[in-house]
Design a protein around this nucleic acid. Structure first.
Length: 826
DNA sequence: CGACAGGGAGTTTTT
DNA sequence: CTCCCTGTCG
């Protein structure tokens, strides 16, 4: 009643205002977008949004529509995004939207539940996990933790289990090493394979109990799965997939009643729907049923594009689109067809590639830039060095064109695999082109980062057994493996915290539990932790400063900067200095992430946890969780230079992004599509090939104006000589069809194309002929790029001698500077 | 029992 | 080239 009244009054008072809003906020939407944003909110909705069709805009507007026009409280809405970055971006967009309309964003957004599926699930589990017997203090197992645990399970399997391998009614699943040796500790199991099978089971909502009760199962896998899960529980850990699995259990086992937070849930929105897996699909169905108000049942909106499904390897099922249609009888579907991103050449080219896939619905995207005719640049080079130099030289040329390119941020180089980056980075360095490698997990897997993480974990939680055992003797303090094992046994028996147990071991001199060397090592270690812990709790410093102080102290006391030296005592090349610097830079980057860490923009998610300042300890603990959820924000280092940097990223990392200029090197069989896909002759081979093709499609459709493709004939690998490679089988047929629209370099483009390029880039056309003549004078750009750039005749706005080296280069530790292909003249 | 040196194996994509 | 594992020395 009350609510109803309130609603009417508001509606009455502000009709004019709402109309005004409608015009302003939705005026920029095209008819299909508008339809999607304002579609019946009491029905399930699918929005099929091909590349560049304004997906984020539509999703954001729909959230705003729910908040403003339907007056749904933000805390009754859940939005799942693919990454934390995407979540932050949405919040930002919403904020600006509200600010523009003179509305207080915090009022409209406070309590909005937005984030990745995983982080939302963890939030629910922290609050309601006890309902399904989960400790509220659980931690998330990182990759290392779950590897250690699984490894232990596999090394201590009893003979009974091993005998199950050959049990006649056991379903055979490949979880074994290729050529197991007699002496193998893991009894012939392949840790990675086992892990991925367990992960697969979890993604299918299969618990160990369910799996063990299934008749068609692998007998030994069932046991291993149970043991693994048991061990996680003993450590008070949940792994990555468990975040979803436990939430699924929480919501499905009638316990739902206890989940107060979701009783008034009124809408669930899912971004990047094509990348959801089975359990996420099920979670969506469950979430749709949480509400106690029937009117709001099944109010879900999903957005995605099955052509961009590139996470099948992570158990994503693009057929969730069809699944959803069958699940709801009244599901509405709206397709967005206007493409605002790419020129029609790029769009047609990528569509042509996709027609190779069988059983695919043809897309009829319309380019809003169809009047522009800019060719696609394609070259086939002799080897990867030449390819890299070609890229550098083209970037340099772009930079020299009068007022065409004002910022390197407009350029991206997209790779299928991260190993491709090495050669390219070298060429960019030589040519003084600033770049930035967007690192996915790679950064967090660096030794120094992992160790720093473990120390932080040990400081923040004196019972983090795994982290403590890993750091206790790293760097070496005289506590060897034998002692570590003994200590672990002691810890497992003890009721005290891990650190207390260690202290007891030191004091227990009568039994001579530790030898002198070990004793010293352990007490030294405990001192380090105490010392650093003090800095966290001092209270006199503000949060950021104490976190920074704590981190610095860890680096200092644990001597983390010397890590590389510890690891390779023998090698003393002059490269060790470079390695040292790299370690230092990486640690600094990590520190920056720590100090600048913010949960999700401005903590719109403060709900009822009193935001009366979290202690440094809490913040640190949240930070560590967010890393385990792969939630770290990619650094946005825009401030350090007005000229920006070229982005180097994997295609997977480039999802949802766009650039005016995109390079896709390695359009070569073995890279795109990858070697593994090509060599696979199994039953899934064509499905896998399709996924690689979609990956290529995603890469192509990131480009707005200028698309560069290249393939190479040979790749020399340091330890296996030369490999020769065909042009990508995706590209071959299409190249012929598009012959007319291809050039080998921008210097071969026609005058009209140049004009179009300038227009596409939003710049006023300036004659480029002078630059081109000069550049053509030297016969071979590849050889002369560098000299050409340094010639005084043309001052590039983008290049100068002080261009700094890249901020961060992933583990470049010992790599010797190779002589670049540039030098091999004649 | 711990530190160290030398051999063998291995390279997708990541929430 | 670099990580991990194993065998030997102090």
């Amino acid at each position: 009643m009350h609510v109803y009244f309130h609603y009417r009054v508001n509606l009455f008072l502000s009709r004019a205002f709402v109309n005004h809003l409608r015009k302003k906020m939705y005026g920029s939407l095209n008819p299909q977008q508008y339809e999607a944003v304002t579609a019946d909110i009491h029905k399930p909705l699918q929005i099929i949004a091909g590349p560049g069709t304004g997906k984020t805009k539509v999703l954001t507007s729909r959230v705003a529509y729910l908040l403003i026009e339907h007056k749904i409280p933000p805390s009754n809405i859940i939005v799942t995004t693919f990454t934390k970055k995407a979540a932050n971006e949405m919040v930002e967009r919403l904020q600006t939207l509200f600010v523009k309309e003179n509305l207080d964003p915090s009022k409209y957004l406070k309590g909005l539940l937005i984030g990745t599926f995983h982080s939302i699930c963890v939030k629910l589990l922290r609050r309601y996990g006890t309902l399904i017997g989960l400790s509220s203090k659980f931690k998330i197992a990182d990759e290392q933790d779950s590897n250690t645990i699984l490894n232990k399970v596999l090394t201590s399997l009893s003979d009974d289990v091993i005998r199950l391998k050959v049990h006649p009614s056991s379903v055979s699943i490949d979880i074994y090493q290729k050529d197991a040796k007699e002496t193998d500790k893991l009894d012939g199991y392949d840790l990675k394979k086992v892990k991925s099978q367990i992960s697969k089971l979890k993604s299918l909502t299969t618990t160990p109990q369910i799996y063990s009760a299934t008749s068609a199962r692998s007998f030994d896998l069932a046991v291993i799965y149970s043991l693994y899960q048991e061990s996680l529980r003993k450590h008070n850990l949940i792994d990555f997939d468990d975040c979803l699995l436990y939430t699924y259990l929480l919501l499905s086992e009638t316990k739902l009643k206890g989940v107060v937070l979701l009783k008034e849930l009124k809408h669930v929105l899912v971004d990047e729907f094509q990348d959801t897996n089975k359990i996420q699909m099920e979670l969506l169905y469950l979430l749709g049923r949480c509400t106690e108000d029937q009117k709001f049942e099944d109010n879900v909106t999903v957005v995605g594009d099955s052509d961009q499904s590139i996470y099948m390897f992570r158990n994503a099922v693009a057929s969730n689109f069809e699944n959803m249609i069958t699940h709801y009888q009244n599901c509405q579907q709206i397709t967005l067809k206007e493409n605002y991103r790419s020129t029609s050449n790029i769009l047609n080219f990528s569509e042509q590639i996709m027609t190779q896939q069988k059983d695919r619905k043809q897309k009829s995207l319309r380019s809003q830039k169809s009047h522009l005719n800019i060719p696609i640049v394609y070259v086939r080079t002799q080897n990867t060095f030449k390819e890299a130099d070609h890229i550098a030289s083209e970037i340099a040329k772009l930079g020299l064109m009068p007022s065409l390119l004002t910022n390197y941020n407009d350029i991206a180089i997209l790779l299928r695999s991260s190993f491709q980056s090495r050669v390219i980075e070298q060429s960019l360095v030589t040519n003084r082109i600033p770049y930035e490698v967007v690192h996915g997990r790679a950064f967090w897997e660096l030794k120094e980062i992992r160790v720093a993480m473990d120390y932080l974990r040990a400081v923040v939680n004196d019972s983090d057994k795994l982290a403590i055992l890993r750091t206790l003797n790293f760097p070496p303090r005289g506590v060897g493996n034998k002692t570590l094992q003994k200590l672990e046994e002691l810890i497992d028996k003890s009721n005290c915290s891990v650190i207390e147990t260690l202290e007891m071991a030191i004091d227990d001199k009568k039994n001579g539990f530790l030898n002198v060397k070990s004793e010293n090592g352990v007490s030294q270690y405990i001192d380090i932790l105490k010392e650093c812990g003090k800095l966290l709790d001092s209270g006199s410093l503000d949060c950021e400063t104490s976190l920074e102080a704590c981190f610095d102290q860890i680096v200092k006391l644990a001597n983390l900067k010397e890590i590389k030296k510890t690891l390779e005592t023998s090698k003393r090349t002059h490269d060790s200095e470079i390695a040292l610097k790299a370690v230092e830079e990486n640690l600094n980057e990590f520190k920056r992430q720590l100090v600048e860490y913010k949960p999700i923009i401005d903590q719109i998610i403060t709900t009822e946890t009193d935001d009366t300042s979290l202690t440094p300890r809490d913040v640190l603990s949240n930070f560590l969780d967010s890393i385990d959820l792969y939630e770290t924000s990619n650094n946005e280092n825009k401030k350090d230079s007005k000229k920006g940097r070229v982005t180097i990223s994997t295609i997977h990392g480039a999802k949802g992004l766009e650039w005016p200029v995109v390079f896709i090197p390695g359009c070569t069989d073995g890279v795109i599509p990858s070697k593994w896909t090509l060599e696979d002759n199994g039953p899934n081979s064509s499905t896998n090939l399709d996924e690689d093709r979609r990956c290529f499609y995603v890469a192509l459709t990131r480009a707005k104006s200028l698309l560069y493709l290249s393939s190479y004939k040979e790749r020399s690998t340091p330890w296996s000589g030369e490999e020769s490679n065909e042009v990508s089988c995706f590209l071959k047929p299409t190249l012929k069809l598009f012959q007319e629209q291809l050039v080998t370099s921008i210097s071969k483009m026609s005058r009209n194309s140049w004009k179009d390029l300038y227009e596409a880039m939003g710049k006023e056309y300036k004659s480029v002929s002078k630059v081109l003549t000069e550049s053509n004078r030297s016969r071979d750009h590849i050889v002369s790029t560098k000299d050409f750039l340094q010639s005084k005749q043309f001052k590039s706005p983008l290049l100068n001698k002080s261009t700094s080296a890249p901020t961060y280069v992933p583990d470049r530790s010992n790599h010797k500077r190779r002589r670049l292909g540039v030098r091999r003249r004649i």
